[in-house]
Simulated assay, not measured.
Amino acid sequence: MSAPWPVKLTFRACAQELAADWDDGKSGRASYRTLRLESPSAEVQGHGRGPKPPPPIVPDDIRVLKAEPVGRYALRLFFSDGHSSGLYTWGILRTLTVGD
């Protein structure tokens, strides 16, 4: 069985969240703050085998300014604090929005 595929991704600025619908019928949400805190970038997750760095300081009113597709497998999110180096694969977005 193939991994779930996003059917619809909706960036809801007023609610400061990403809503996602998946091709297996599941749906969920992740706040912009969670997306920023869980960025898959090396800056947030750490480089190599060393310990994970402390979480970034993220303002409560963080916004996603833009999202760009990366091939057919991920999104690059551009946040209002200038962070844009993480690639959010469909698997990562699935985990952040649905939890499985």
Rank of each mutant, 00 (worst) to 15 (best):
P69Y: 05
P6F: 06
A67N: 02
V64D: 00
A42S: 10
P55L: 11
S80V: 04
R29E: 10
G48A: 12
T89S: 15
R12F: 01
P59V: 07
P51C: 03
F78K: 06
D60N: 13
A20I: 06
P40F: 01
G48W: 12
S39G: 01
S80T: 09
G48M: 11
R36I: 03
T34Y: 00
A42K: 13
S2C: 00
S39R: 02
R29K: 13
W22R: 05
K26G: 01
W5Y: 14
D23V: 07
G46W: 12
I62H: 02
P51K: 14
T34K: 15
L77T: 04
L77K: 05
L93I: 10
F78M: 09
T34S: 11
P53T: 08
A13D: 15
V58L: 02
L96G: 04
D81Y: 05
V7N: 10
P69H: 13
A19G: 06
D100N: 14
T10P: 00
A20W: 04
A19D: 10
Q45N: 08
P51N: 11
F78A: 05
G48P: 09
R94Y: 15
R72W: 09
R72Q: 14
W22A: 09
A74K: 03
S84A: 15
P55N: 07
P69V: 14
W90Q: 10
F78T: 07
P6E: 05
A42N: 04
Q16D: 02
T10F: 09
A30C: 11
Q16W: 01
P51G: 13
P53S: 08
I62T: 05
A13T: 14
M1T: 11
I57T: 13
L65I: 07
K52H: 12
S84D: 15
R72M: 11
L75T: 00
